[in-house]
Design a protein around this nucleic acid. Structure first.
Lengths: 160, 160
DNA sequence: ATCAAATGCTTCGCACGCGAAACAATTCGC
DNA sequence: GCGAATTGTTTCGCGTGCGAAGCATTTGAT
């Protein structure tokens, strides 16, 4: 909070439409991803995991958590269900026996091959319709915003 | 699927950073909202409901669902828990006895007064740091994007 | 070598979030 | 007016998503 710019912020309808649009784009892209995944018998996050693993072969559970922006406890559950479905395998690391490596099974690899679109691809497809100038502008502004948020979050720390 | 534009879309790192930024901004703003709400003993969505109800007094469950972008079945659960906590009340509409009106209790109103910040306010605060020109650009581009997505979704319908 | 702190993962309990099915009240077609 | 379709809400089952607590392994301090 720290004083900041709370004075004129209420008078900017543009800000509302920005927030509105971001929320809308996010929820809609998630729904689209979910529908796409459902057509292949998996959930959205499971498809994300499959597509993360495909190019690199194996990832630790923590790396996976970081990549899909979830906590370890969440990913544990996702991997549990995927393992039950025979899509992935858990294997203990030799180097560090705390670490669990997740790899795709044959079935998981087949699934990855069947779905040529990345989870975010539909989103990207629509973004690709932007003019190059707009895309550049959007990228520039959003990246700056994200960096600013990251700064604020780090600065203020987690709790309190 | 159906052909689409899968040719040149892989060559635009800008698009990745846009997607990345939107995902980041969304998840982070949600976490911030959640922390804020937790300090007052409620959850993120519950705070959103309280703040929706505060200015208008009452809303039907469907209106509430629409406003917080969730399905009725989700909001039923949220209202269940809020009612259990004594924050809101359900009341049948006289005009249309299918409709349930949700209103804030005294306790709910007190809570609404205690938290001066709207759920999206923190997000907006950061957005407010943008230069007017950037804000206008961002608003213009994102609004167009959202409209485009809406068109596509309507056009293709729900399933299939 | 040994104990304490840090790290990686799992377990637990809870709160969303959704679609499908069920149910009640309303509206529509005739 | 009567049954069919529609609308508003709830119930159910499942899959995230999280923080706190717990466990095993590793690293650090001495």
């Amino acid at each position: 909070m720290r004083a900041a710019t709370k004075n004129q912020s209420a008078e900017q309808p543009e800000l509302d439409s920005i927030v509105e649009a971001i929320l809308y784009l996010y929820t809609e892209s998630r729904r689209i991803t979910k529908d796409l995944a459902a057509r292949h018998g998996v959930t959205g996050p499971q498809l994300a995991v499959v597509k993360m693993l495909e190019p690199v072969g194996k990832l630790s559970l923590s790396e996976l958590s970081w990549k899909i922006r979830a906590r370890n406890s969440t990913v544990t559950g996702i991997i549990d269900r995927m393992e039950r479905e025979g899509l992935v395998e858990r294997r203990r690391s030799e180097d560090d026996r705390r670490v669990i490596h997740i790899t795709l099974t044959k079935k998981g690899q087949r699934l990855a091959g069947e779905i040529p679109v990345e989870p975010v691809q539909i989103f990207r497809q629509i973004l690709a319709e932007l003019s190059p100038r707009d895309a550049a502008e959007l990228s520039r502004i959003l990246t700056r915003l994200a960096r600013r948020v990251r700064e604020l979050v780090h600065e203020k720390g987690g709790t309190e």
